[in-house]
Amino acid sequence: MSQKATVLFDAPGPRAKVRNNIIGVVGVALLALGGYWIYHKFDQTGQFEKQKWDPFQYSGIQELIFDGLKSTLKAFALAVVFSLVLGALLAAGRLSDHKVVRWAATAFVTFFRAMPLLILIFFLYIAPAKLSGWPGFLDFINDDPMWPLVIGLTLYNGTVQAETMRAGILALPRGQSEAAYAIGMRKSQVMASILVPQGIRAMLPTIISQMVVTLKDTSLGFIITYPELLYTAKQIGAVQDYGLPLIPAAIVIGSIYIVICMLLSAFAVWLERFLSRGRKGRPPKIKPPTGESIAAPGVAAGV
């Protein structure tokens, strides 16, 4: 282990250690000064006055924030599920042997990855009311602003997830698919049984990271009056009786976003470790004739 460490990383010498310590101290000092400057500016403008923070003590405001949190999580959950399904279908289309399917999937991915998400959500919100001849079965999009947000998030994040999944599948050794074809498996069987599970495991951190982006992008529902957390912050910050507490509302709502993203990131770390343990497994124990239980070779050495 020490040999690998010396090969991959050279331990810093005395001068490098001093230089790194100085850089660390200066960096911490700059961060502390920046934090104090922000606090001082907020304090100068009266953002920490008791009047501006009083609304958060009332159950009505707390219930409003809780409702905004539920709306955010609802849109997030639907967008994540739909984007993963769409991503899997588009990834399969991009890897298809049929040119028409592959070109259609490529055009779809290229278009919606290039389309700004805010414009896409706003278009889906106004199109049903402005375009004549809109199919009647799509009236639900015009009735609830949640659906333009969810559909926009699905189309954009689905194309990103498709490229992530495709990259994970293409990164696998070709020998696995060739061996599967050699024993008579069809391409659909190879994809479903061998390549896709391994590709998703390999790209799981990237997939979870895109989910975090999806969660933060739910705040774009503010532009179409969807009552998510950012829209709730605007409602609270516009109350005249409490001195327009927009900054305190932004601090509270921003803290909620940070906590949710941290929980999602922690879940990603746990899931990656869980899948890694499940893939490697535990070495079996060998019972000698004497009845004493010893570990398999290599376990004691940490292999």
Results as ranks from 00 to 15, higher is better:
Ala182Arg: 14
Ala182Asp: 01
Ala182Ser: 15
Met185Tyr: 06
Met185Ile: 03
Met185Asn: 09
Arg186Val: 07
Arg186Leu: 13
Ser188Phe: 05
Gln189Trp: 01
Gln189Ser: 09
Val190Glu: 13
Val190Ser: 10
Ser193Asn: 10
Leu195Glu: 11
Val196Ser: 00
Val196Leu: 13
Pro197Arg: 05
Pro197His: 08
Pro197Asp: 08
Gln198Met: 06
Gly199Trp: 04
Ile200Ser: 02
Ile200Tyr: 07
Arg201Glu: 02
Pro205Trp: 04
Pro205Thr: 04
Thr206Phe: 09
Ile207Lys: 08
Ile207Asp: 01
Ile207Ser: 13
Ile208Phe: 15
Ser209Arg: 12
Gln210Glu: 14
Met211Leu: 13
Val212Ala: 06
Val212Ser: 06
Val213His: 07
Thr214Gly: 11
Leu215Tyr: 13
Lys216Gly: 00
Asp217Lys: 03
Asp217Cys: 10
Ser219Ile: 02
Ser219Ala: 15
Ser219His: 07
Leu220Cys: 12
Leu220Gln: 05
Leu220Tyr: 04
Gly221Glu: 12
Gly221Asp: 06
Gly221Ile: 04
Ile223Arg: 11
Ile223His: 01
Ile224Ala: 12
Glu228Cys: 06
Glu228Lys: 00
Leu229Gly: 07
Thr232Asp: 05
Ala233Lys: 11
Gln235Gly: 07
Gly237Ser: 06
Val239Ile: 14
Val239Asn: 09
Gln240Asn: 14
Asp241Trp: 01
Asp241His: 05
Asp241Asn: 07
Tyr242Phe: 15
Tyr242Arg: 00
Gly243Phe: 03
Leu244Thr: 05
Leu244Ala: 12
Pro245Tyr: 00
Pro245Phe: 03
Leu246Glu: 04
Pro248Gly: 06
Pro248Glu: 11
Pro248Arg: 11
Pro248Ala: 11
Ala249Leu: 02
Ala249Met: 03
Ala249Gly: 07
Ala250Arg: 10
Ile251Phe: 02
Ile251Asn: 07
Val252Trp: 00
Val252Ile: 12
Ile253Ala: 09
Ile253Asn: 03
Ile253Cys: 08
Ile253Ser: 08
Gly254Ala: 02
Ser255Gln: 05
Tyr257Val: 04
Tyr257Gly: 03
Ile258Cys: 03
Val259Asp: 09
Val259Gly: 08
Cys261Arg: 09
Cys261Pro: 05
Met262Phe: 07
Met262Pro: 00
Leu264Arg: 00
Ser265Gly: 09
Ser265Gln: 15
Ala266Thr: 08
Ala266Met: 05
Ala266Lys: 11
Phe267Thr: 02
Ala268Ser: 15
Ala268Val: 12
Trp270Ser: 14
Trp270Asp: 13
Trp270Leu: 12
Leu271Val: 05
Arg273Tyr: 11
Phe274Lys: 14
Leu275Asp: 03
Ser276Lys: 12
Ser276Cys: 03
Gly278Cys: 01
Arg279His: 08
Lys280Met: 09
Lys280Ser: 14
Gly281Ser: 08
Gly281Ile: 01
Arg282Leu: 12
Arg282Phe: 06
Arg282Ser: 11
Pro283Asp: 03
Pro283Gln: 12
Pro284Lys: 14
Lys285Gly: 11
